[in-house]
Design a protein around this nucleic acid. Structure first.
Lengths: 204, 204
DNA sequence: GGAAATTCTAGAACGTGTTTCTGTTTTGGG
DNA sequence: CCCAAAACAGAAACACGTTCTAGAATTTCC
């Protein structure tokens, strides 16, 4: 395995280390939210998190690892809501659009942060595979959950091959649209419309 | 308009300038093909193209502009074939898969080059809008062409709203898949499978 | 053909991601 | 408690994208 991992929350021994990790990610998110990808400068993150530059690199082997790890944490927090309540809507189409709409709006509320995280995600190479995989799983799971009947408990869900395939395609389109939005090549409306079209075509 | 354009082939006055531009793009493609995104270093491109660094930046205002312009040229060359012969296949599905299969295989034959061009494309921001648009048009047009009846001449084709939407969705999925492939997160087979699923779902 | 404007060259210089080095602090096992 | 190992701080140094400057070469225009 040639992947160079970020230090995960669980494999950090002491409380001081978990705290450092948290401070680093907090600083990352704060800087990203203020000025986007370019504002997340490693020296600035280190200073703000009150750690040395070398320490920052011990925890996250590159700026991309750092940002993608930040994305994973944000995504987890933001979507924990969907795990509790059933997703409103009578059809898979409606429910998927509901989830996409909510999440997209939430992302668009903090454009700088979204820009930073999305670009890091798209720029990540194989060495970031683990961190990327975490995020990808979140997305796919969320889509599949929205497609299922909301009455049955989560554990009982056995998605078909097609369900998974559809969920992945929707995820791909979503990501492409977001990239176009954060890079200023598409408007927020364009994103909604793209997603609507894709979901309409896929879930029928 | 805040976009900083690359100097296009047509708006270059003298033959010497067109030749410089060509040398620069040739050097870019050669370096990319040899070592991928990281190997396309501006100093190396300038040296290989036998121009000064400042001149390189006069022709292409950033590394991303340079690579996306290279992508546009490559795409144009590689796909001029499809404009001449009719695309084989009895159904839109078959024809689109034929085009995607051929193009994807051709990209996978030169992984370093594909990696360099794809990552540049994904990282491009609004200032590269013009160059990006050229590439996007190529893709969409190619998809639409594959979806149409191959008997009728190209000029007569009037794609429906839905055709365009579908073409764009396929383009998005294709791009996402390629990104996953160049970043080592998906195999060549995964790309084929993704595309097959997406096309099957969309063209039915 | 000559002057002015533009383009090009060569190279220094700057900013930020990344690496490396040295010395100090913290940690964990005996 | 002590010591070796690991982790950390602080700072210098390096790499590459990008910018800037001064002068040489080329083009444009009268």
């Amino acid at each position: 395995m040639t992947t160079t991992n970020s230090l995960g929350y669980e494999e950090l021994g002491s409380a001081a280390q978990r705290d450092r990790r948290k401070r680093i990610l907090d600083a990352t998110i704060a800087l990203a939210s203020k000025g986007g990808f370019d504002a997340v400068q490693m020296r600035a993150v280190a200073e703000r998190a009150d750690v040395a530059l070398g320490t920052l690199y011990r925890y996250f082997p590159s700026k991309i690892h750092l940002l993608v790890s930040g994305l994973a944490r944000e995504f987890e927090q933001a979507n924990s809501n969907f795990d509790r309540r059933p997703i409103p809507g009578d059809t898979p189409h409606e429910r998927v659009m509901y989830v996409l709409g909510r999440t997209t709006r939430s992302l668009q509320r903090d454009p700088n942060l979204t820009e930073a995280l999305t670009r890091a995600f798209m720029f990540a190479d194989a060495s970031v595979a683990n961190e990327i995989h975490v995020v990808g799983m979140h997305v796919t799971k969320l889509m599949i959950r929205a497609m299922q009947d909301q009455e049955s408990p989560i554990e009982d869900i056995v998605p078909t091959e097609d369900d998974i395939a559809i969920a992945k395609v929707i995820g791909d389109v979503w990501l492409s649209s977001l990239v176009q939005w954060v890079t200023g090549r598409a408007s927020a409306q364009d994103v909604s419309k793209s997603m609507d079209v894709a979901v309409r075509l896929l879930l029928r």
